[in-house]
């Protein structure tokens, strides 16, 4: 299986193709609904973000609390479509990879062209996926608890290229 290093290289953005199964390695940032609302507001006002979006990979997820001995609690993807309203602005600011589940709005697919790739992880496979997260720390919005922003290190997380940077999609309705 193809191994992909994060942040994505320009070459990977260009050649990853919808429908490919790959494994991801490297750094990603976990952020979902409430965190996106705040990040978007910060972008609008020009405030400093808690992490750099340049080349960033965001994993849409909200893990369970870690049990003793766990790096992170069970951590599968959440529905990506709920942050679609914010995503084009984040891509504009440098976001180049997203991991989630489900369809994206046409505006997101358009904003991704030439710049970003959307990977789908299997919803509900939370333990399997968290076993590929080897480091995790909360870096912002700790008050959001399950929705706090976390920096994570991925080691071989299995995903499928759901929508590529050319606008091809592996998701239903399949053209």
């Amino acid at each position: 299986m193809k191994q992909i290093q994060l942040p994505l290289s320009a070459r990977d953005i260009a050649i990853l193709h919808a429908g490919e199964t790959v494994t991801l390695y490297g750094e990603a940032v976990i952020a979902r609904d409430a965190a996106h609302k705040r990040l978007y507001a910060m972008l609008q006002t020009g405030a400093d973000l808690p992490f750099s979006l340049s080349g960033a990979c965001i994993y849409y997820a909200g893990p369970c609390p870690a049990a003793p001995g766990e790096v992170i609690g069970p951590c599968g993807p959440t529905t990506s479509g709920r942050v679609d309203a914010y995503t084009p602005a984040l891509i504009e600011a440098g976001l180049s990879a997203m991991i989630g589940k489900g369809a994206r709005a046409p505006e997101v697919v358009h904003a991704m062209r030439g710049r970003a790739v959307y990977f789908a992880a299997t919803g509900g496979a939370a333990i399997l996926l968290s076993s590929h997260i080897v480091a995790a720390e909360v870096i912002a919005f700790a008050d959001l608890e399950a929705e706090a922003v976390r920096r994570v290190t991925l080691a071989g997380m299995p995903v499928i290229v759901a929508i590529d940077a050319q606008g091809n999609s592996a998701l239903w309705p399949i053209a």
């Binding site: 369970c64 049990a67 069970p74 599968g76 919803g123 333990i127 399997l128 968290s130």
Partner: peptide, 16 residues
């Protein structure tokens, strides 16, 4: 596979 891992670890299948 995830279900088998969750059952063995007695941890949730899904984070939600």
């Amino acid at each position: 596979e995830n279900e088998a891992l969750a059952r063995a670890a007695r941890r949730p299948c899904c984070q939600d």
